[in-house]
């Protein structure tokens, strides 16, 4: 990967000047929005971070599940559920026969899969360049209550459920994950809606004393 070729799809929504830019996985991203104390405080209330730089890989088709299994990937059994691979990467089953795989922080599973042998019949590559978010905090349900009309409380979400719904009028994929000792929600949306959705969610986060924070607050690999 050469640096500076990739820019996070959310870039347009980030403020100019006050934030610290950096490069993660070859993608230009904001690594810090405010001072680290303030970011930690925001995270308590309602933190939102850009995780778009995590490599993604997708396949669909009637033989997609089998092929992934052949590659040693853990395949979630149920439609609309997710599983974690040993290396921390995520495997989301989107409906019945489509899969989204996202690298673990620092991982490179997706690059490997992309280079894997020619796909057999019934396995079709799906390019993924979504904008991707991490959300957490005490007020996260209040954000959901404003942007989404379905019940996303932990009680309502099954443990490993993947939800395809709409946030503020935009289609998203959502899942919930307890990681590094805290409850986090992951959200993906089409990259062209990334800046818009960031602005909406970061705006609501601000109203709840939260706001944008660097990804290092969530993944210690990027501290």
């Amino acid at each position: 990967m050469q640096t500076e070729k990739l820019i996070t799809p959310i870039a347009h929504a980030f403020p100019v000047g006050s934030v610290a830019w950096g490069v993660i996985n070859g993608m230009q991203v904001v690594t810090r929005f405010v001072g680290s104390d303030e970011e930690e405080a925001r995270k308590e209330f309602l933190g939102i971070a850009d995780a778009s730089f995590l490599g993604k890989f997708g396949v669909k088709g009637r033989n997609a599940a089998q092929w992934l299994q052949d590659q040693g990937i853990v395949v979630p059994e149920q439609p609309n559920s997710w599983a974690g691979n040993a290396d921390g990467s995520l495997v989301l089953r989107l409906g019945g026969s489509e899969f989204l795989i996202e690298n673990a922080p620092g991982g490179n599973l997706c690059e490997k899969l992309l280079k894997a042998d020619a796909k057999p019949a019934g396995v079709y590559l799906v390019p993924h360049v979504e904008a991707s978010f991490v959300l957490s905090g005490n007020a996260v349900q209040e954000l959901f209550a404003e942007v989404c009309s379905i019940d996303l409380t932990r009680a309502a979400l099954g443990v490993q459920e993947v939800v395809m719904t709409q946030f503020a009028g935009v289609s998203v994929v959502l899942m919930h994950q307890d990681l590094e000792g805290e409850a986090r929600y992951r959200v993906w949306c089409d990259s062209s809606y990334g800046p818009y959705l960031w602005e909406v969610m970061a705006g609501i986060a601000n109203e709840h004393s939260g706001g944008p924070i660097g990804i290092g607050n969530y993944f210690s690999a990027y501290k």
């Binding site: 347009h12 404003e146 503020a168 009028g169 990259s191 062209s192 809606y193 990334g194």
Partner: peptide
């Protein structure tokens, strides 16, 4: 209430902006 007005930006939006682009709505774009 506080409505939502989703819109889509191309990855070249900022580049266009720097070049002096005046934008128009084409669907959500």
């Amino acid at each position: 209430g506080r409505g939502f007005h989703p819109h889509r930006l191309t990855p070249l939006h900022d580049v266009n902006h720097k070049l002096g682009a005046v934008f128009t709505d084409v669907g959500a774009w």
